Simulated assay, not measured.
Amino acid sequence: MKTRALLTAAVLCIAGPAFAQGKAPAAKEKAAAKKEEAAAKKEEKMAAAGATARAELKDQKGQPVGEVTLTETPHGVLIKGSLSNIPAGEHAIHVHEVGKCEAPFQTAGGHLNPGKKKHGLLAAEGKHEGDLPNLYVGADGKVQFDAFAHDLKLKDLQDQDGAAVVVHAGVDDYKSDPAGNAGDRIACGVVQVQK
């Protein structure tokens, strides 16, 4: 019995370091894999930053009224637009959930809302990812604007049915669900991601 115990102890003393070495490479491999995964995620985020989408907006008669660009940043999406031939005054603008613009633009669906939140920048349970600040159009019918959507990603616009940018006849009150009482849809453009 003592001999068997001594032999077992001797085998463990000799084989122990070999067993430990077998575990070390596995731990190193795991650490390397985690490091590689983190680097890939960072690279993906950096590649997404700077990606751009465009929407050419037209009115209900099919006449061009301008362009909106959406640029991915590390913090959300920068939205820039230049529009003309829009009635003077304040107008709601939103990103809608369907990339289809057939007058009177109901084909664009509701506001883009993958988070299933309530409508409105002022709503406690809001906002939709597609909710944007109102536009202020001058007497000449022109407006240039910049807006930032920190909770939006370009990938949100690339699902099966796409997305659209829609300008409304009225103002968004920033709180009424589901669309801020913004009224008719007067311009629409399908969002096209640039390759």
Rank of each mutant, 00 (worst) to 15 (best):
A33V: 06
A124F: 01
S84F: 06
A48Y: 00
K80T: 14
D59W: 05
P17N: 13
D156V: 02
A88Y: 02
I14Y: 04
A33K: 14
L152K: 07
S176K: 11
K61R: 13
G110N: 12
A139L: 09
P104H: 10
H96G: 05
F105C: 12
A88C: 00
L70S: 03
Q63G: 11
P87C: 02
I186H: 10
F145T: 06
D151W: 02
D146W: 00
A55V: 05
A5Y: 14
V95N: 03
L6R: 11
Q192A: 05
A9C: 01
A147Y: 06
G189T: 03
V190K: 05
N134D: 14
G120F: 01
L157K: 01
K45H: 12
I186T: 03
G138C: 06
V190G: 09
Q144L: 00
K175H: 08
G138W: 10
E125G: 01
G130F: 08
P87E: 06
R4C: 06
D177E: 06
C188L: 02
K175F: 08
A182E: 10
V166I: 13
K58H: 08
N85T: 07
K23Y: 15
E36C: 00
G170A: 09
I93A: 04
D173Y: 00
K175T: 08
D146T: 15
G22C: 05
G99E: 03
A5V: 12
P104N: 09
L157S: 05
P104Q: 04
A15C: 13
K41N: 11
D173F: 06
H91L: 08
A179N: 14
A48W: 00
P17T: 07
V11M: 03
K175R: 13
K127L: 02
E97F: 01
V65T: 10
I79Q: 06
S84Y: 05
E37F: 14
Q194K: 14
V143D: 09
A55F: 01
A88L: 04
T73V: 06
A88N: 11
D177S: 08
G162K: 09
A53Y: 00
A31H: 05
L132M: 15
N113L: 07
K2T: 12
E44F: 01
G162P: 12
K23V: 10
Q21W: 12
S82P: 07
R54C: 03
M46V: 15
P178V: 06
T69C: 05
D159K: 13
P17V: 02
G130R: 07
K175V: 15
A24C: 02
L6C: 01
V165M: 11
Q194E: 14
E56D: 09
K153E: 15
A47Y: 08
R4Y: 09
A24D: 15
V98C: 03
A26P: 00
P178E: 03
G99A: 08
H75Y: 13
V11E: 02
Q194W: 10
M1T: 14
